[in-house]
């Protein structure tokens, strides 16, 4: 991998704005009341997006899990009557509900650089007061995850358990042990991030030029139109 990546490594270039619109629409549709066919279509589109970003491992993992859960649900969903079985079905449906969103979110995070985000939003004439926090938020979520994993690891080295039992019986202690190092180490990362942004001239008032070229092209329009059509058809109830 090169040291600095300005443009994400995709098969077809997709504008960050398209990814965002797709993410929001898929969110709305998945959270609402919808037929199974819509779910399958949305999961399919999300898989395509992942593949387009050359995220093969994620495609196989999330896509495979989705269709596996779907198969289990449609095969056994109605016959299970024991409480445990029903609990498992509910859990599998919950996971399935979130999978397309997770996929789109992965595309947003792993397949979009911060430069691309900022360039796209600047083209959409959004104020800097919104662009910067939003771009940083998307960039920072994986960092939080990494820091959290490191903390849990460090805790286990010292023999402090971190699990269901610890959360249930010593909630405040566990909270303190996780939260304090997380915030302290994140604060360090934030300062570095801010310094990096200064060197890139993010705090200038003048209009920034950008090496990344973002433009809405044919694939963008096709994708957006496709999802919007699914949305309208679903609202009209023509998809069963």
């Amino acid at each position: 991998m090169p040291a600095i990546t300005l443009q994400s490594n995709s098969v077809v270039k997709i504008d960050p704005r398209t990814k965002l619109v797709l993410f929001l629409l898929i969110n709305i549709m998945m959270m609402g009341n919808k037929p199974v066919i819509v779910e399958v279509l949305l999961a399919g589109i999300s898989c395509l997006l992942l593949l387009n970003g050359r995220l093969i491992k994620e495609t196989l993992l999330y896509g495979g899990l989705f269709f596996l859960l779907l198969a289990i649900d449609s095969g056994y969903g109605l016959q299970v009557s024991t409480p445990i079985g029903q609990g498992l079905i509910i859990a599998s449906r919950m996971i399935r509900l979130f999978l397309p969103m997770v996929m789109c979110f992965t595309v947003l995070m792993k397949n979009t650089t911060v430069s691309e985000f900022i360039a796209a939003f600047q083209k959409a004439h959004l104020p800097m007061g919104f662009i910067i926090p939003f771009a940083v938020m998307v960039r920072f979520v994986p960092t939080v995850k990494e820091e959290y994993q490191a903390i849990v690891q460090a805790m286990s080295y010292r023999g402090i358990p971190m699990g269901v039992k610890a959360v249930l019986f010593k909630p405040f202690m566990t909270l303190e042990y996780v939260m304090v190092p997380l915030l302290i180490s994140s604060a360090g990362v934030m300062d570095e991030l801010a310094a990096a942004a200064m060197t890139r001239g993010l705090d200038r008032d003048s209009i920034r030029s950008n090496l990344v070229d973002v433009k809405l092209r044919l694939p963008d329009y096709t994708l957006m139109a496709g999802v919007i059509i699914i949305f309208i058809l679903m609202k009209k109830g023509w998809l069963g």
């Binding site: 926090p133 995850k145 994140s186 990362v189």
Partner: peptide
């Protein structure tokens, strides 16, 4: 700008 970056980063922790 620095404070805007902090806002975004804290929002990320919040959202997680």
């Amino acid at each position: 700008t620095k404070e805007l970056i902090l806002a975004g980063a804290f929002a990320a922790i919040f959202v997680v």
